[in-house]
């Protein structure tokens, strides 16, 4: 008998002995957040939670403000990588050398680059999190946002939700997803959080927040 058959047989027998009644799962937790998606309050809370975990937030009023904001945070960088579908105009004012990940750069190449600029699929205000979808052209494959030491992420207010359930409802797990909450950190020394380990040690978020109509 194969291991597969034996393990499944054991589990079936054990399950039947221990009980096979399927419980109803109560879903009376909040499935919508306290603030409406894209609302000023959601964006405000996201700013607080991102900042709390040592990301730096830069607000711009519209898409036209993005190039200057990105250029400003990349002022000290000499090279930057961008996913294939990142809008070219966003990098229009950057003085650093821009490398598109198309064709894909080697890991060694990525290691020589100072920074990466990506978009994001969704951001979660409650937790200070944004999610990168590797299948989205403006976010790109996972390695590009991992190896460079400085990550600049552009987030639109419309993509900001309050809660984790709202974010997951907007995401399809077809491709790799990376949930990012602040720069890399560890709690492994005396269970206190310190920032800066293997992932990017510097995290800048450019938030596009249109003035309220």
């Amino acid at each position: 008998m194969s291991a597969r058959e034996e393990v499944l047989a054991r589990l079936r027998a054990a399950r039947d002995v221990g009980g096979s009644t399927v419980p109803d799962v109560p879903r009376d937790y909040h499935r919508t957040g306290v603030h409406a998606p894209g609302s000023a309050a959601a964006v405000e809370r996201l700013t607080e939670t991102l900042t709390d975990y040592r990301a730096t937030v830069h607000r711009v009023g519209d898409l036209d403000g993005v190039p200057a904001a990105i250029a400003a945070v990349l002022a000290g960088s000499s090279s930057v990588v961008a996913p294939p579908g990142l809008p070219g105009e966003w990098l229009g004012e950057v003085t650093a050398t821009v490398r598109r990940d198309d064709p894909p750069l080697s890991v060694a190449d990525l290691d020589r680059l100072d920074a990466v600029v990506t978009g994001a699929a969704v951001a979660i205000a409650d937790t200070g999190t944004f999610v990168l979808d590797a299948l989205a052209p403006d976010q790109g494959r996972r390695a590009i946002s991992l190896v460079p030491d400085h990550h600049v992420c552009v987030i639109r207010a419309a993509d900001v939700v309050s809660s984790v359930p709202e974010a997951l409802a907007r995401l399809a797990p077809d491709g790799p997803l990376t949930f990012v909450s602040g720069p890399s950190a560890t709690s492994d020394i005396e269970l206190d959080r310190v920032e800066g380990v293997h992932g990017p040690r510097r995290l800048d978020v450019v938030l596009i927040v249109p003035p309220r109509a």
């Binding site: 975990y53 999190t129 996972r142 491709g175 790799p176 990376t178 909450s181 890399s184 269970l191």
Partner: peptide, 21 residues
């Protein structure tokens, strides 16, 4: 676990993704 609202990184993947990972 770590007493954080969210841990810095959560990765998810499904099987193999051509061109990534």
């Amino acid at each position: 676990s770590t007493g954080e609202r969210m841990n810095p990184y959560t990765s998810s993947w499904s099987g193999v993704t051509p061109g990534d990972g």
